[in-house]
Amino acid sequence: MNKPVTQTIMRSGLGAVRGLGSAKSSTTTEHWFAERVAAMALIPLTLWFIYSILSMVGAPRSTVAAWAAHPLNATFMLALVWLTFQHLMMGLGSVMTDYIHGEKKRMVAILAMRGVLGLFCVAGLLAVLKLAVVG
């Protein structure tokens, strides 16, 4: 007599109905892609940033202001701050999605993280603009 064949189907009906999965959900792909686009842009910007910071070690405020008054420095710095925060918020969002359990708790934590870091980002951009324009 043949033994009955029992096989676990590794697929959930709900997942299929909701169109989940990395191939179907475009927001997931976009998130993944945007994180890497920011990463690529941050390669030259980070090298430039490390060079700039090293050139200002121990410098007084006036030197930093004069540095930021150069339009190229201000442009790169604004791009660096903006893209760093974009990349940071996406990365931390992924980490929190993985490790915080419970729909509500996760949502609240990610929104709070984005709120705090978003304000830090605006403050950083504002500071660079002020330094660049006013000194």
Binding site: R61, L88, G91, L92, V95, F120, A123, G124, A127, V128
Partner: peptide, 30 residues
């Protein structure tokens, strides 16, 4: 990679503090 990514959050916040201080006053920057 994840641990350093999370740690860099603090470095980035420090950078913003440094920028805001530079844009505020000599005392804040000092």
């Amino acid at each position: 990679h994840r641990i350093t990514g999370v740690a860099l959050m603090f470095g980035t916040m420090l950078l913003v503090w440094w920028l805001v201080a530079a844009a505020t006053s000599d005392d804040a920057f000092a």
